[in-house]
Design a protein around this nucleic acid. Structure first.
Length: 102
DNA sequence: ACGACGGCCCTCG
DNA sequence: ACGAGGGCCGTCG
């Protein structure tokens, strides 16, 4: 069903996000045709087992805050910073600059 | 099948 | 700027 493809679609989309760029949960929800399912996107990512192959740390909140992560936000921030994303007080600086537009 | 629980988002005040 | 509240939806037990 649609929900079967749902997580697959989400993960597939994540793989397209370049290093050093970010996307929002809602953005992805819209991109895969489920504009109201932003929260469900998080549920799908929560189960992502291929953390290396699928960079789910590049998904953040719509207001530029980091949001949660399977391995903890701390880890998520480190990863983003290691890709050149500037973060200050738990929020991404120059958010729209790093935002990967679809 | 059902209900709770999230890696959310938007709208007020 | 900031918190509270309501809405939404896939996943798991």
């Amino acid at each position: 069903m649609a929900s079967k493809n749902f997580s697959q679609r989400v993960l597939a989309f994540c793989q397209r996000i370049p290093r050093g760029r970010v996307c929002t949960y809602g953005q992805i929800a819209r991109a895969i045709g489920r504009p109201q399912a932003a929260r469900a996107v998080g549920s799908a990512l929560r189960k992502n087992k291929y953390l290396i192959k699928i960079p789910c740390h590049r998904i953040v909140l719509s207001d530029g805050r980091i949001g949660n992560y399977q391995k903890g936000r701390r880890r998520k921030m480190k990863l983003l910073e290691s890709e050149g994303v500037k973060i200050e007080r738990g929020r991404i600086i120059e958010f729209d600059k790093y935002l990967f537009k679809v």
